[in-house]
Amino acid sequence: MQNNNAGASSRPSNKLLIIIISAAAVICTAVLLLFRFVPFGGNVAVISQNGKELYRIDLDKVSEAYTIDLGGNVVLVENGAVSMQSADCPDKLCVRQGKIKNGSHPIICLPNRVEIKIENDGEKDVTDAVVG
């Protein structure tokens, strides 16, 4: 096959490629699981559209669930969690991402350029967390 051709010494062996790419796959999986299951802290949902911040909601202070209509998207705000309830885009990927809480990765609706992320509420909460 091709690996016996001239210049083979300057080319990485298939075995080396398999090791490198498998290692990259394992690292990516580990980081993905880290994002998914490790709580980073944070209780403030920040909703932005077109790169502009529209809402900043303290999720711990939400007593009753309510929705925010952003035109194409409807955001469901609950105590401690936030999710995309509906969207008018064809793929609905943002809806299928489910609820986010505790500073896990953001919900992004690319077609409507809507972004929901969880942030820490400034330094006040960090001190509270340390004291508490």
Binding site: I27, C28, L32, G51, I108, E115
Partner: peptide, 18 residues
């Protein structure tokens, strides 16, 4: 998007690329 939040998808997209 005018935002860097999409870069959270890097590990998922790299894994899918592999």
């Amino acid at each position: 998007m005018g935002s860097t939040a999409v870069f959270w998808y890097i590990p998922a997209l790299l894994l899918s690329a592999i």
